[in-house]
């Protein structure tokens, strides 16, 4: 349990550092803004109390907002991910229930279930985020294109990073 907390703090620092210092600075196209940091909320242990997930999501979003001058936008998007996470976990859970401290990762869940879990939550996050960023209806097609393109890109990054993480885990 102690080591789990240390691991999650480490993951928070690495993912937000990567997001702020690298991904936010990379300019591929106006339609591709990947937000890999949301993986921090997705990868919290399944047994984490929902209220703790909410508070951690709030802190994560606020940190992103401070660094990108978008006060409230990332915070709201993260809160929605935390709100819907329990329902998504229910959707992917096996009938006999999870073992304690089971982690929602690609290695544990397998591709179809993980794609369902991460896909929906990333889409919700990006939808809320870009909706609040644009906040006008005359740019709706551009907004939708950006939501879909960026969600797909974020998912690809999540899968790549899961490959890295799961290699270390599968040996145990």
């Amino acid at each position: 349990m102690g080591i789990e907390i240390v691991l999650n703090i480490l993951r928070f620092v690495v993912l937000l550092g990567l997001q702020i210092l690298v991904l936010n600075q990379v300019e591929i196209s106006g339609f591709l803004n990947p937000y890999l940091y949301v993986l921090f909320i997705l990868a919290l242990p399944i047994e984490t109390p929902r209220a703790i997930v909410l508070i951690l999501a709030f802190i994560t979003g606020l940190t992103m907002d401070v660094f990108s001058d978008t006060l409230g936008i990332h915070t709201t998007a993260c809160l929605w991910v935390a709100l819907l996470r329990p329902a998504m976990i229910k959707l992917i859970s096996p009938r006999e229930g999870f073992e304690f401290y089971f982690k929602p990762t690609l290695g544990y869940l397998g591709l179809p279930k993980y794609l369902l879990y991460a896909g929906i939550l990333v889409f919700v996050h990006h939808f809320v985020l870009f909706f609040l960023e644009f906040f006008r209806f005359d740019e709706l097609p551009r907004m939708l294109l950006k939501i879909v393109a960026s969600s797909v890109f974020t998912l690809i990054l999540i899968f790549i990073s899961q490959q890295f993480f799961s290699k270390g885990k599968s040996g145990q």
Partner: peptide, 15 residues
Amino acid sequence: LFLFLQIGALVLLFS
């Protein structure tokens, strides 16, 4: 709790 935090975020957003 969600509503409470969400209202906080919206206050930040509009301010």
